[in-house]
């Protein structure tokens, strides 16, 4: 074993990761709860109605963070995939696998809240708005990744196959966004309210940022917890194998 491999193995040591995660998680959970409390207070008791959207701007405070996490989750999977393909980092596999369902849930929430915002603003639940459409395609990319993970039983093979797919998808996300924008300008009926206002006043921006921070912290709490669980799951699998091997040897 070369020296660099040794270094990576030390960094990748799952036991060390478990103890770091166990130390961080309570603090991060506390921060998440506080941020949510502050964010919800600002949303419902402080933030004024928007002059254009009225009170429905409150939906933006959960829609925008969910949409941001949908993108960040996929980027996180792509970065982990590079780690898993190039360095065969065992934690990168675990990180990519556990981020996929969490990211997919936030993508789903971005779509649902966007649609509930659209009904009063646009008059219909679904508009083939460029943003909604690209987020919908992003959800399909997530579902493909999850399905691929579930179809391949052997974890290391599943990890690398999913990593290849995730990177191909990551290269495609901007291309899909660009083509949907193009398609939308060809078909878009003029003058609908956009999901993003031109300039956001600070009374709206502050709750939005606090909620975004709260959602982001929640994502990482869930991701860290899911990663430690995935490591436990692999230990259980390994123990079961030794158990079977011992029973066979006796």
């Amino acid at each position: 074993m070369t020296q660099t491999e040794g270094l990576f193995n030390r960094l990748a040591n799952p036991t060390r990761f478990m103890s770091i995660a166990a130390a961080i998680l309570p603090w991060l959970t506390g921060v998440t709860v506080i941020l949510f409390a502050v964010g919800l207070y600002l949303t419902f008791f402080v933030a004024p109605p928007d002059y254009q959207q009225g009170e429905t701007v409150k939906i933006m405070f959960i829609h925008v963070p969910a949409a941001w996490l949908a993108m960040m989750g996929y980027s996180l999977i792509a970065v982990s995939s590079i780690g898993s393909l190039i360095w065969r980092h065992p934690l990168a596999d675990v990180s990519a696998k556990t981020a996929a369902p969490i990211g997919a849930v936030f993508t789903f929430l971005a779509l649902v809240t966007g649609s509930l915002w659209g009904k009063p603003m646009w008059g219909t639940y679904w508009v083939w708005d460029a943003r909604l459409t690209s987020v919908l395609v992003l959800l399909f990319l997530y579902l493909g990744l999850i399905a691929l993970w579930q179809s391949i039983e052997e974890p290391s093979r599943a990890g690398r196959a999913a990593a290849i797919l995730a990177l191909v998808g990551f290269v495609n996300v901007p291309i899909i966004k660009f083509s949907v924008d193009w398609w939308n300008t060809l078909h878009q009926p003029a003058s609908v309210a956009r999901l993003d206002g031109p300039a956001i006043h600070s009374s709206i921006l502050t709750p939005l940022l606090v909620m975004a921070a709260a959602f982001t912290c929640l994502f990482f709490v869930l991701h860290l917890k899911a990663m430690t669980t995935e490591i436990l799951r692999r230990r259980v699998e390994a123990l079961r194998m030794t158990q079977v091997a011992r029973a066979a040897a006796e």
Binding site: P49, G54, E55, T56, K58, I59, I62, H63, A66, V105, F108, L109, V112, T113, L116, W117, K119, P120, L218
Partner: peptide, 20 residues
């Protein structure tokens, strides 16, 4: 007092809360 579209705001927050 969530304005005329209160139902949509409540629904959005409720769905997010339930799913999360």
């Amino acid at each position: 007092n969530l304005g005329e579209h209160a139902a949509f705001i409540v629904a959005a927050y409720a769905i997010v809360a339930i799913v999360l």
